[in-house]
């Protein structure tokens, strides 16, 4: 069964006296179980709106969605999801231990279950050393860890994380990243939004991209349509000066680091031809690497295309 299914999910914010804002327009999405799904888009594209809809914080204007077959408007659906908002806020006067106890009680866990949850989550997110300090004095990274911990209480099969890594230092990011990968290995489905594309690229099985409330792309990271190979880089050594000069003239770009020459050519065809010439000139191929368009470039291009429409 699919973890998340949305059908024509739309949300329009109406405020009296102001123009209606169509935050999300007809989102159709299907996310399989045990998938890590990255949700990308610029600020205001509708990522947070989608997440709030899935978590029952706001009500859809039209369309619907379900989590593991349960309508999102029902309480049962929310039992299956752990949610971490962007910049999680908690009661400042509680300690992480009290916070997790509180959420455990909201989930209807017994005291023994709550203790078990604490042991599991605190181990995963290294909470033990801050367990009994009030959240009031916490740094951003500590809060983020508590937020993640709260999402994990009750061991829900689906985790929805809103910008889980924004504003964290490298160590914090790594901790979150490793936690996500571990949870994926445990069989969880993870849906997270981000505008840090390298994280998405590294973690996600599939991504979806929102532009102005519309899903414009949706697919495997390595299969995104239109994600082009920009050029191919051929690295060679053992070339003498004359041979190198001829080859430089034939390639689109060239750099030399010590005795290593880096040639750039437009595509694999040219790369193969170049490689043959290098070998013929007595050189040795060290590496032949296709350079893909980065996700950033890709999204910038898509956005421009959408904006132009």
């Amino acid at each position: 069964m699919a973890a998340i299914v949305t059908r024509a999910l739309s949300k329009t914010y109406k405020v009296i006296g102001k123009a209606a804002v169509r935050s999300l327009r007809g989102l159709d999405l299907e996310i399989a179980e045990n998938e890590v799904f990255g949700f990308v888009g610029r600020n205001g594209a509708g990522k947070t709106t989608t997440i709030k809809l899935l978590c029952g914080l706001i009500h859809p204007s039209s369309g619907g969605a379900s989590l593991f077959g349960e309508d999102i408007r029902l309480r049962e659906a929310r039992r299956l999801v752990g949610y971490m908002p962007e910049q999680p806020y908690f009661y400042e006067y509680l300690t992480p231990r009290e916070t997790l106890t509180f959420y455990g009680r909201l989930r209807g866990l017994s005291a023994a279950q709550r203790q078990a949850q604490w042991d599991r989550v605190a181990g995963l997110l290294e909470l033990e050393d801050i367990a009994d300090r009030r959240i009031r004095g916490f740094s951003k990274g500590m809060r983020q860890r508590v937020g993640f911990a709260v999402a994990l209480v009750g061991d829900p099969p689906l985790l929805i994380l809103d910008e889980p890594m924004s504003g964290l230092d490298p160590i914090g990011r790594r901790m979150i990243r490793e936690a996500i990968l571990r949870l994926r290995d445990e069989g969880k489905t993870i849906f997270f939004s981000s505008h840090v594309l390298s994280d998405v690229e590294e973690l996600c099985d599939r991504i979806g991209m929102l532009v102005e409330g519309r899903l414009v792309h949706h697919g495997r990271v390595d299969e995104l349509p239109g994600r082009r190979m920009k050029e191919v880089e051929v690295s060679a050594e053992g070339l003498d000066g004359a041979a190198a000069a001829t080859l430089v003239a034939r390639s689109a770009g060239h750099r030399q680091i010590d005795q290593v020459h880096l040639f750039r050519v437009a595509d694999l065809e040219n790369a193969n031809a170049l490689a043959a010439e290098i070998l013929a000139a007595g050189g040795r191929i060290r590496e032949l690497q296709p350079v893909r368009e980065s996700l950033d470039d890709f999204f910038a291009r898509i956005q421009q295309k959408e904006a132009a429409k």
């Binding site: 709030k52 978590c55 029952g56 914080l57 309480r75 049962e76 929310r78 039992r79 999801v81 949610y83 971490m84 908002p85 910049q87 999680p88 806020y89 908690f90 009661y91 959420y103 909201l106 989930r107 209807g108 937020g147 709260v150 999402a151």
Partner: peptide, 14 residues
């Protein structure tokens, strides 16, 4: 206002 509600309402409760 402080968004403490987000994580609470998203729990399985009315």
């Amino acid at each position: 206002d402080k968004k403490t509600l987000y994580t609470i309402i998203s729990q399985p409760m009315h």
